[in-house]
């Protein structure tokens, strides 16, 4: 049972990562358009997503069993990506946040930028823990 759930979470985390990255990219793109900023200036926001995506691809290519069979890691990944999607949805659709009405952009950039900083730290944390798990297994991984 747990192995099936683990397998589901392992696949789900890839989907959720891509979906959360897409939503973040959309909001950042919209924000940059409004502020007349170049997208290159926002690259630091995307770095944790890209590094995580790369490490997940490496996990798949090298069949890192320690990651594939780690229920807690897969669960935390899904939880964090789910949280990012939730934050993005609130940024786009929560009608009760007054800044959204005040700014008139149909998006609450203030809330998004407030929430993005801790979420990025969590993404870096997931990347580092993935590396540490691989190192803890060494060649056996």
């Amino acid at each position: 049972m747990i192995s099936i759930l683990n397998r589901v979470l392992y696949l789900l985390k890839m989907l959720l990562l891509i979906f959360s990255f897409g939503l973040t990219f959309y909001i950042i793109l919209f924000m940059n358009q409004r502020l007349n900023k170049d997208l290159i200036e926002s690259i630091p926001v995307f770095i944790p997503f890209i590094t995580l995506l790369l490490i997940f691809v490496i996990n798949i290519i090298f069949h890192h069993q320690i990651i594939q069979n780690n229920f807690f890691y897969n669960f935390v990944c899904c939880f964090v990506f789910g949280l990012i999607i939730y934050v993005c949805c609130r940024t786009l659709f929560d009608p009760y946040m007054i800044v959204r009405i005040r700014q008139g952009y149909q998006m609450n950039f203030t809330y998004f930028s407030d929430m993005m900083a801790p979420l990025q730290i969590m993404l870096y944390g997931l990347f580092i823990s993935n590396i540490l798990f691989i190192l803890s297994k060494g060649k056996e991984a």
Binding site: F72, Y73, V80, M122, G125, L126, I128, S129, N130, S136
Partner: peptide
């Protein structure tokens, strides 16, 4: 360290 980091993130 990896487990602790995961715990903190969670």
């Amino acid at each position: 360290m990896a487990q602790s980091l995961l715990g903190i993130i969670f």
